[in-house]
């Protein structure tokens, strides 16, 4: 039975697209057939995060409008056999697609794939409504900042109102050092406030920037902390009980360096 999972956050820039790309790539590595839908019409980005920007011929709007068949628009990933991308249109308006059309599209994709991730645009307007229209489950991405957590709370309410219950949370860009110093909300603080199930945590890791520069999901890089974090989340989605990773802090040398740089 295929699952359609929307990756959403309310606030922009918290890591929805990176999360969708990494969960998709990670599940594909485990042999699952996965499709990623970029629902951010007009501001597509999932293609560049996956390094597939040069292969786009048709997009989501083309499929919905009947300009091509669904299979023609699906782009196969470079590195993994079972990963496909349905890119967003870059030149169309957000309301070029309706929730009914999105529902129909996801139903059609269920025939093809085991996991379908919908990368939701920021905001709570039509793009959000489209993205959740065909979804059975929701993953909320947040960062340990007031604005991101506040928006996450609002999204939880809107998802419930739309009949999508029990979303799961990914806390992104945690900086263990700052949490320890009392200058960043920790996992427990955020879970206490939002009162939803924690799916995973991802440390703030420079490897993500490097891998995004290259157009390769960080989950493929097993040496990186963020890659491991995404891999843990992927296995949890598969129903495996994986303990939360312990976040490594900087070594003493790096700490001294940062302290000196910070004071100067």
């Amino acid at each position: 039975m295929a699952k359609v999972i929307v990756v959403t956050s309310g606030k922009g820039g918290v890591g929805k697209t990176t999360t969708a790309a990494n969960l998709g790539a990670g599940l594909a590595l485990l042999g699952r057939k996965v499709c990623l839908i970029d629902a951010d019409i007009g501001l597509r980005n999932l293609d560049v995060v996956l390094g597939l920007e040069n292969r786009i011929v048709y997009d989501l709007t083309d499929v919905v409008e009947g300009n091509c068949r669904l299979r023609q628009a699906l782009i196969k990933d470079k590195r993994t056999d079972n990963l496909f991308l349905l890119p967003a249109a870059q030149t169309k308006e957000k309301d070029a697609v309706s929730p009914e059309q999105m529902l129909k599209l996801t139903e059609e994709l269920r025939e093809e794939c085991e996991y379908i991730f919908v990368d939701c645009p920021a905001g709570i307007e039509s793009g959000f409504k489209n993205a959740i229209a065909g979804s059975d489950e929701a993953i909320i991405v947040t960062t340990p900042e007031i604005a991101a957590v506040r928006d996450a709370d609002r999204i939880i309410g809107l998802l419930e109102a739309a009949g999508l219950y029990d979303p799961r949370l990914i806390i992104n860009r945690i900086r263990p050092q700052m949490v320890r110093q009392g200058d960043m909300m920790g996992i427990d603080d955020i879970i206490e406030i939002l009162a939803i199930e924690l799916l995973g945590i991802v440390p703030d890791d420079e490897d993500i920037i490097v891998s995004t520069n290259r157009g390769e999901p960080v989950v493929l890089d097993r040496r990186s902390q963020a890659g491991q974090a995404y891999n843990n989340i992927v296995r949890r989605l598969e129903g495996i009980d994986v303990p939360l990773m312990t976040l490594e802090e900087d070594g003493w040398l790096t700490r001294v360096k940062k302290a000196i740089m910070g004071r100067s």
Partner: peptide, 9 residues
């Protein structure tokens, strides 16, 4: 500052 953030939130 974490406590301040949490309380404001």
């Amino acid at each position: 500052s974490k406590d301040i953030a949490k309380e404001r939130l």
